[in-house]
């Protein structure tokens, strides 16, 4: 691994963010990344965060038209409440703050504690949970669906609404609509290795893949012998469509898990477009690349978000962040 020592991986990356992106204020000690012009007068602020290891999520999405602040935790470990309280205080213009929280037990507990503490300090806070991963059955027997690729759609689209001056209730409603309209399915071709462990966090033999893998290498639905890009696309898109059953055209994210080359991802994207065309689902916009990653895992994920005219307009609105940038 390209690191110094495991203990400083997150701090080292934050120092790199600070050096690379002068448009961001990076508190390396306090572990908060804030857009430099925050608080933006009259604007609802978006704060997200989660374990590190999914870069560019979330710090790479801080900027105009998306997040106002991000709170990175240790690798694959949710941030602590004080980070979100600090972030909320730094970005609140008086119009309130929306927490975007991926549905994992740790993230939910820490953001809930932060919400109480921030409200004690007079900040109005709303929360949206992202839970788009169809590989997990949402039942009382699990912690519920995991938050994965839809996080990008929620942060971009709700961020655009906030940038336009929508009030907190409206930004929250849009964020919920985007989450409810989105589903994902991911596949691992190799396990990921955390710096602390120094090796793979699960055993995935060569020549096998994990269908429905989570973004921390959590197991999915089943393990199978290696499949072709075409077969993976068929399986993944059908898994998403079976659950989403879209009546509107969709926004498409073909996400890389971190270690899969763009050459392969674009080939996979071609197969995804083919399946969607065969299933009669029109694609309004698509994005291919490493956005919600799992360290050095090889693999891919399909996220669909069915979009009405309003969501499409907000998706197309200008955005300027380290990882996502158009129209500005």
């Amino acid at each position: 691994m390209l690191i110094n020592v495991p203990d400083t991986v997150v701090a080292d990356a934050l120092r790199g963010m600070a050096a690379t992106h002068p448009e961001l204020t990076v508190d390396v000690e306090g572990r908060v990344i804030v857009r430099r012009d925050a608080p933006v007068a009259g604007k609802v602020a978006l704060v997200s965060g989660g374990g590190s290891g999914h870069e560019p999520l979330h710090g790479g999405f801080v900027g105009t038209g998306m997040l106002d602040a991000a709170c990175p935790g240790e690798v694959f470990t949710s941030p602590v409440p004080h980070q979100m309280v600090k972030a909320a205080a730094a970005v609140d213009s008086g119009q309130g703050v929306l927490f975007v929280v991926k549905n994992y037990t740790g993230d939910v507990l820490n953001f809930d504690m932060a919400m109480e503490l921030a409200e004690d300090e007079g900040v109005r806070v709303a929360k949206v949970l992202v839970d788009d991963d169809v590989a997990v059955t949402d039942s009382t027997h699990t912690a519920g669906r995991r938050g994965t690729g839809a996080t990008l759609f929620v942060e971009k689209i709700a961020g655009a609404a906030a940038e336009e001056g929508a009030p907190l209730e409206r930004v929250e409603a849009i964020a919920r609509q985007v989450n409810a309209s989105s589903r994902s399915f991911g596949v691992a071709l190799s396990a990921c290795s955390t710096p602390a462990k120094g090796g793979p966090t699960f055993a995935l033999p060569d020549g096998e893949l994990e269908l429905g893998v989570g973004i921390h290498g959590e197991p999915g639905r089943e393990r199978r012998p290696m499949m072709t890009s075409r077969e993976i696309a068929d399986f993944s898109v059908d898994a998403v469509l079976e659950d989403l059953r879209p009546t509107n055209p969709v926004l498409l994210l073909v996400g890389g898990a971190g270690a899969t080359p763009l050459l392969e991802l674009y080939g996979f994207a071609a197969e995804v477009h083919r399946v969607l065309a065969e299933r009669g689902v029109p694609v309004l916009r698509s994005l291919v690349g490493n956005y919600v990653t799992s360290l050095d895992m090889a693999g891919c994920a399909v996220t669909l978000c069915q979009a009405d005219e309003e969501l499409l307009r907000l998706w197309d609105a200008p955005v300027r962040t380290p990882a996502l940038r158009w129209g500005l």
């Binding site: 374990g51 935790g73 240790e74 470990t77 949710s78 941030p79 602590v80 409440p81 004080h82 994992y104 037990t105 740790g106 507990l109 820490n110 504690m113």
Partner: peptide
Amino acid sequence: LISTVGGASGPL
């Protein structure tokens, strides 16, 4: 613990 652990185990 709440301010240093993170994850689920910190709050719990």
